[in-house]
Design a protein around this nucleic acid. Structure first.
Length: 284
DNA sequence: ATGGTTGGGATCCAA
């Protein structure tokens, strides 16, 4: 299948740019899906989580064909893995080890205007929501605590950060299909939801997805593979996020979950989230 | 209360 002629623009755009974040659940298994997404939506920046591939086996060609000449990759065999693609030059700002582990769960890109995009893949946390019985849940809480300390350290004024990724927590009641039924389910337990909202407060992060969708309206980005009819059952959760530094709030022009991607052949269980940012509209 | 599905890389783990 021949790709549509990709955008040839390689300079940092003066117009608003589009940024997508997507837990792709194996980038090699989703090449057709990715091709369709890039052809239709062609974001300027693409942040991936769960690439599940070592760097030497990353399928670069697909992204090059679609006009992403610049990339930052942190991969490992089988699990985790994050990547950032751009049409214009980006620098590696940081690739953090979370809680001292070598898991590839974070990478950050600096854009030409100085804005830093942080791409996170927070651990899912296993099945049992008790840190004493479940090391994976303890690890998730440790990552959340470390991110909170990191976010505090960013300060507030004059900052241009974007935090995206699969945070594996659905913080609001309307971020899950049933608040009551999920209170004991990892991703929506009080220690997680309160922890994530506390993290949000440290830097005054703006929740870009919720900026356009009221708190009483359901909003999901993930639907389990285990539901035989995911769309009809609609038992979703909002696990994926796009957050902006307070100084970038005026830049936010739009944000949507591209739910159609969940319904495609060989879909990821996550849908991509697409944000439109006019970084020139910040007064800074 | 239970089990349901997927991908990776080995015959099970993580999600």
């Amino acid at each position: 299948m021949a790709a549509k002629k990709p955008k040839t623009e390689t300079d940092f755009p003066k117009r608003a740019l589009t940024l997508a974040t997507w837990n792709i659940n194996s980038v090699r298994a989703r090449q057709d899906l990715m091709h369709g997404f890039l052809q239709q939506y062609a974001p300027d920046i693409l942040c991936l989580q769960e690439t599940k591939v070592r760097d030497s086996e990353f399928p670069h060609d697909l992204f090059v064909q679609h006009g992403y000449a610049h990339r930052l990759i942190q991969g490992q065999p089988g699990y985790n893995g994050v990547a950032i693609f751009a049409r214009f030059p980006i620098e590696l700002a940081e690739a953090r080890k979370l809680v001292g582990r070598d898991d590839k769960r974070h990478i950050a890109a600096r854009l030409p205007d100085g804005t830093v995009i942080h791409n996170y893949y927070v651990p899912a946390g296993g099945d049992i929501p008790d840190p004493k019985k479940n090391d994976k849940f303890q690890h998730k809480l440790d990552v959340l605590a470390e991110m909170t300390a990191w976010s505090k350290g960013l300060g507030r004024k004059g900052k241009r950060h974007v935090l995206v990724g699969d945070l594996n927590i659905a913080p609001l009641e309307s971020d899950v299909w049933s608040h009551k039924q999920l209170l004991d389910v990892v991703s929506h337990t009080p220690v997680e939801t309160e922890g994530l909202l506390a993290l949000q407060k440290t830097h005054g992060w703006l929740d870009a997805m919720r900026h356009f969708v009221g708190p009483s309206e359901k909003l999901y980005s993930w639907w389990s593979y285990r539901s035989p009819d995911w769309e009809k059952a609609d038992k979703g959760r909002r696990l994926d996020h796009v957050w902006l530094s307070p100084d970038l709030a005026p830049a936010l022009k739009g944000c949507q979950v591209v739910k159609a991607m969940r319904g495609k052949e060989k879909a990821s269980d996550h849908a991509p989230v697409l944000a439109t940012l006019d970084l020139a509209a910040t007064g800074g």
